[in-house]
Design a protein around this nucleic acid. Structure first.
Length: 846
RNA sequence: GGGUGUAUAGCUCAGCUGGUUAGAGCGUUACAUUGACAUUGUAGAGGUCAGAGGUUCGAGUCCUCUUACACCCACCA
């Protein structure tokens, strides 16, 4: 008690009282910026996956930030020049959709507002939510370099976007073409293939009498624009028609279709005859290319039937379907209608059903050889992973990556929304197309003519695919780019492996001829206790900010990291976070206790001398811990590292060593050796509480930039011997409990041990709360003592324990009696079993 | 239709290249607690490792099949 004046820590850790202040101190220190870290060392870089500039941070963000901050803090403590570059994404479609929704509530739509005014509204909205996001990233404790904060739609990143576009165009890797695309009628824009999601639905399969055939379709209205009929080449029923052009009457609407054969047609499905609508189905479009079919566009960009639909013109798709089916029925042309489960394609941002339609758009050619490189973009991206240049953790996602890449089609990059990078293409008065990096450049190229810009914008993933290097100043040759690229780790969820990770690899390999990162670490999705996805509609979402307020950031971070493994989903719930809050408080109180015990609060610099077995043991355990945690962190086994730290801190250091220290006293050297180092290795996991405790050491530097401790040799003998120590104490407590002897009641006890000194045994007795007798107590069974009496701990064993031990001995004897085992098993395994048998027998005999 | 993952205590999960009597946290039961911590301590109960075969001296761990769940991809009109 008399020593407690020299430290000042409340009885329980209250995170809210410290976190904001600690973060402010870190930020002001400038050490988030690698320029202020020591010179000339190896660098370590992570580009923060930019959160969408919409709404607020959810648990998924909290988890990705916790992982990244863990790696960043670890590497900073290891002395690397550590850069974590934060930023946000303008998230073209997502943001535009969101603002449109807000405007719609006021009865305004973007067209009535006009492009300029609408974009202003979006900018306001983005500025607002970026502020929220920045604050929330800070709340998680993210030690990122705010001075380098980036935004995909900033001026400098827009330069990178135009540069990339122009280079690809000049290399023939970006082209404009009239092709079939995914069209979202609500967004009034194209979508990339991977931006289309599928929803199972119960639809109808209509069998339509179609000239000499019966054609089965889920979308009868599209038959108005059929230009072909496909059958399987093996199908004997229709051989005579192959190659013919037939005129078909569909309830008065006349179409001309060419009959052809293709192996893709399944003669078992539906009627075995496919009506081909090239303008509104990707498969049919391919058929049209192969068989030279006419392409008749039927559905326009608003999802309405065009004049090519005859009397159905002007109707929406669904209206036209209803009317046309009625007309066909009236004409006796519906043979039957069946129920059919199929996938409805919907927009990934607004869930609107997708219309495939033909349109003139910009594409990235993934299968075209890059000039001078004899490789396609696709091949480039596959190779980077295949030759292990880039490592994906967990490895199984490499396979998923290859599969996706190999099946990648040309990437449609033009969007018809307003929010985003305008395509760097202008048209001169004489209708010449000018592709240029800027308006000035385009004007120059136009040679004095007036120019007009293409209104289309770029897919948001085009700009984010440049993220690892556009944020470092590319296309300028900057010092940052040189120092920090390729980045070290890309930490993100497996759900955006395709959207983002794959495209970053593709772009970096093409534009920089280098990988964007060395390792991709993929975390899983956060789910609720039942394993359900957290979502607004289910109301099962946990708000990370609320959890931080309730339990503290450190507790939330631990709950996200411990118990998770890469690529696997994680269930999170409040009790779990609460449990880690308890742990953080334990660490706090361990520190309080240490500070209360020692004469002066300072750090022991050198490995201390050991006085007792417990001393030697705890140092041995601690050295082993440092070694293992370091190894685990180097190999991305964050959860395992956390579990080991947890176990050491609570079950070894607190439960045993500190309890022994209360008895043995005078442990200043060792306590002040372990505690600061323990705080250091905990720091990447729980940055706040460790930094707060660290302040008590009055060090001239933050724990954040302390040095990662080195592991010394471990004393195996001490580890082995201390097991006996623990074993004896546990036995005593056990016997007392079994005999209903209150823990506080000191009964007599005789102890003996081969390895423990008499001093050790005295400590054992104190921990077990017994009176240590120097002579063996004979003649009586301890059970008869009931609540008072003597114990010879080594002899006491319950019936159950006896039985278990006997069983164990039998199984070992059987094993060792087996010739095959003795002959085939490695000698050390046999010897080990032999030893165990002897020990067990001895125990039983005692 | 293809592919991947998961299945271990009531719940959430560890268990690395096969070799202790299969572990942890939460929950639960009993006891304790004014001296670091009730956000605590001590002790206990609780498991045919989804099922069936196989490989091996030895399988929770490797192989095959089956079942259940989850996810991803794909152009069944």
């Amino acid at each position: 008690m008399d020593k407690q004046d020299n430290f000042n820590l409340a009885k329980a850790y209250e995170p809210q009282e410290y976190e904001a202040e600690i973060y402010r101190l870190w930020e002001e220190s400038g050490f988030f910026n690698p320029d202020n870290l020591s010179e000339g060392k190896e660098s370590f870089t992570i580009s923060m996956p930019p959160p969408n500039a919409t709404g607020i941070l959810h648990l998924g963000h909290a988890s990705t930030l916790a992982y990244q901050d863990l790696m960043i803090r670890y590497q900073r403590l290891r002395g690397k020049k550590t850069l974590w570059l934060p930023g946000t994404d303008h998230a073209a479609i997502a943001t535009q959709t969101k603002v449109e929704k807000i405007l719609a509530e006021k009865g305004v739509d973007r067209h009535s507002l006009g492009r300029e005014k609408f974009l202003e509204k979006v900018k306001e909205y983005v500025a607002d939510s970026q502020g929220t996001i920045r604050n929330q990233i800070r709340k998680i404790g993210s030690s990122c370099d705010w001075s380098r904060e980036a935004y995909t739609f900033s001026d400098s990143l827009s330069v990178a976007v135009n540069e990339a576009f122009v280079r690809m165009y000049n290399d023939g890797l970006i082209y404009r073409g009239y092709r079939i695309v995914n069209w979202c009628p609500r967004c009034a824009s194209t979508l990339a293939d991977d931006e289309v999601e599928y929803q199972e639905q119960l639809g109808k399969l209509y069998y339509i009498k179609y000239g000499p055939f019966v054609v089965a379709t889920t979308r009868p209205e599209t038959k108005l624009a059929d230009t072909g009929v496909a059958v399987n080449p093996e199908d004997t029923r229709y051989q005579d028609y192959l190659g013919q052009v037939l005129e078909i009457d569909l309830a008065g609407h006349k179409i001309k279709v060419k009959v052809f054969a293709d192996a893709q047609v399944d003669s078992e499905f539906g009627s075995g005859v496919v009506g081909v609508t090239p303008a509104h189905s990707a498969v049919d479009y391919d058929f049209a290319q192969k068989n030279d079919l006419e392409i008749i566009k039927l559905i326009d960009e608003q999802g309405k039937i065009m004049s090519t639909g005859g009397k159905y013109a002007g109707l929406t798709v669904l209206e036209a379907r209803e009317k046309f089916v009625k007309d066909l029925e009236a004409a006796g042309q519906i043979e039957k209608i069946e129920d059919l489960e199929n996938n409805l394609s919907i927009c990934y941002r607004c869930d609107t059903p997708i219309e495939p339609l033909t349109s003139e758009q910009w594409f990235v050619a993934v299968d075209k050889k890059i000039p001078g490189r004899d490789q396609t973009l696709k091949e480039l991206a596959i190779q980077a992973v295949k030759n292990k240049e880039i490592k994906i953790v967990p490895d199984r996602f490499s396979k998923v990556y290859y599969h996706w890449m190999e099946n990648l089609h040309d990437w449609c990059i033009s969007r018809q929304i307003w929010w985003g990078h305008q395509i760097p293409v202008w048209y001169s008065e004489d209708q010449k197309m000018i592709v240029a990096i800027s308006e000035e450049d385009a004007l120059k190229k136009a040679g004095g003519q007036k120019i007009a810009r293409d209104p289309d914008t770029l897919d948001t993933w085009f700009s984010s695919s440049l993220w690892t290097f556009s944020t470092l100043g590319w296309p300028e040759k900057t010092k940052d780019l040189d120092l920090f690229h390729p980045t070290s780790v890309m930490e993100t969820g497996y759900d955006i492996l395709f959207f983002w990770v794959a495209r970053m690899i593709l772009m970096s390999e093409y534009l920089l001829e280098s990988k964007p990162f060395e390792t991709v670490y993929l975390h899983g999705m956060i789910r609720d206790k039942e394993g359900k996805k957290m979502s607004k509609s289910l109301g099962n979402g946990i708000d990370p900010i609320e959890m931080i307020e309730k339990f503290g950031t450190d507790a939330l971070r631990l709950s996200l990291i411990i118990g998770s493994s890469p690529g696997a989903d994680l269930r999170l719930y409040e009790e779990k976070i609460e449990g880690y809050r308890n742990f953080v408080n334990k660490l706090w109180n361990i520190s309080r206790f240490v500070f209360s015990q020692v004469g002066e609060i300072k750090i022991t610099e050198n490995l201390p001398k050991t006085e007792t077995l417990a001393d030697a043991w705890i140092l041995a355990e601690f050295n082993l811990l440092i070694k293992e945690v370091t190894e685990n962190l180097e190999t991305f086994k964050f959860s395992l590292a956390g579990e080991k730290l947890y176990e050491f801190t609570w079950s070894k250091f607190a439960d045993w060593y500190l309890e022994v220290a209360k008895i043995e006293k005078n442990k200043d050297e060792i306590l002040l050796y372990i505690l600061p180092r323990l705080l250091t290795i905990w720091h990447p996991f729980t940055p706040f509480v460790t930094e707060v405790i660290w302040e008590q050491f009055k060090s001239d530097k933050f724990l954040m930039i302390n040095q990662w401790p080195k592991a010394d040799e471990s004393n195996q003998e001490a580890q082995e011997n201390f097991k006996d120590f623990i074993d004896l104490v546990t036995q005593i407590r056990n016997i007392k409990a079994e005999n209903k002897i209150p823990p506080v009641e000191f009964v007599d006890c005789y102890l003996e041990s081969q390895v423990l000194s008499s001093a050790d045994l005295e400590v054992v007795a104190k921990l077990g709360r017994v009176n240590l007798k120097t002579e063996e107590i004979t003649g009586e069974n301890f059970a008869s003592f009931k609540s008072r009496g003597q114990i010879k701990a080594a002899k006491a064993m319950t019936e159950k324990e006896k039985e278990d031990l006997e069983k164990y001995i039998k199984s070992l004897e059987a094993k060792l009696g087996n010739k095959a085992f003795v002959e085939n098993a490695p000698p050390e395994v046999v010897a080990d079993n032999q030893k165990r048998l002897e020990e067990a027998k001895q125990k039983l005999a005692n």
